[in-house]
Amino acid sequence: MRKYLTLIIIAFVLVSCENLTQNEVVSVKESHIYVNDTLYTITGICYHPVPKGSPNNRSWSTLTQDLGLMNEAGINTIRVYEPIDDLNVLNEIHNAGIKVIIGFGYNQGGIFDIKSGTFIDYINKYKNHNAILMWELGNEYNYHPEWFKNDIKNWYNEMNAAAELIHTTDPNHPTTTAHGDLPNELALSLSPNIDVWGMNVYRWDNPEPLFKLWKAINSKPMYLSETGGDSYMTITKAGYEQGENQKAQADAAENILKKVFDNQDICSGVTLFSFTDGWWKAGNNDIQDIGGYAPNSTGIPYDGAPNEEYWGIVDINRKKKLVFDVLKEKYLSVNNKKK
């Protein structure tokens, strides 16, 4: 009798372990994103952790610290601009209860890129990992027709073909893209295989008109793949003094996030830009410089200038800025409502 009881216990444990590691299914239905049939609202952050002095090479040396800060802030999703080809990193992100939007570039020298087709090798390698939320194809490529023989239709056609291949390879995760602002009729007509439209939106501190425009033209899910403001004022404007100004950044984020979460019937969330300041983006990589270029950046609050190295919710040393608490309050409120 004891022998049979032991076998039953072992079988129960094996079944329980199998259930714990069961692959999740991310789907889109009725303008929303679902994980295992549970509505998923993105309370996210863009994440590209480059240390001081590095030209543009990510480092995972601060990952544990970063994930702790993300958990504190209620972040449930990180958006990365290139694939994470490290199982230990993906495991740690998943164990922190956070999902990843994996971004693929067009031409990355044949390393998991769209041009060479090697992006599908990455998807085959990691498609069963429960850290994955979506597969993203391109970031603001609509601003760069010169990369595609001066005809942006070439990009939309390639993006659509890549998305179709993803559908046949991995039916359990949606395809997305990070489009520069609202996609036009051409983009939508040539890209039917994109399941979720991410939009990098810099319309001062009020993205709300965009949500209503989207609802009028398309029924697919959308989210803001980039938005926010920097913590440096190039000029004194709108009541904010010139120079480093964390209050300007915090106020902009508060206004933007309120509009995002007031429109959850249309908008599936946001990955605010960005987790940490990026000292590699303008000038000397060993110091924090003002300036830097970003296409279509005139709508950045409150001075219309991007100051690319000042966008973090924490600084390069992981010290929280004022915007961190704004994000935390908004995100935790949304997450608590879902419980």
Rank of each mutant, 00 (worst) to 15 (best):
L14H: 10
N307L: 01
G312V: 00
G105R: 08
Y122A: 03
D230E: 15
K259Y: 12
R203L: 14
L182Q: 09
E140C: 08
D262P: 09
M70W: 05
F261S: 06
S274H: 13
D230G: 15
A178C: 07
K153P: 05
N130P: 11
N150D: 13
R203H: 14
L332Y: 13
I84D: 01
Y81L: 10
D151K: 04
K258C: 11
L322N: 11
Y240A: 01
N154Y: 06
V196H: 01
L87H: 14
V26A: 03
W135K: 03
F148E: 02
L182D: 02
D113Y: 00
G97D: 04
F211D: 01
D325I: 08
N88C: 10
F261T: 08
G198N: 03
L182F: 10
L186V: 15
G110W: 05
R79M: 01
I101M: 00
A73L: 03
S61Q: 14
Q246F: 02
A162D: 03
K52F: 04
E208M: 05
M159K: 06
L327W: 11
Y232M: 02
D205S: 15
Q288K: 08
Y47P: 00
L188H: 07
L90A: 01
G103I: 05
W147I: 02
S116T: 02
P306V: 00
H179S: 05
L90K: 12
D181P: 04
N184I: 09
V15Q: 14
K247L: 15
Y81A: 11
N154R: 11
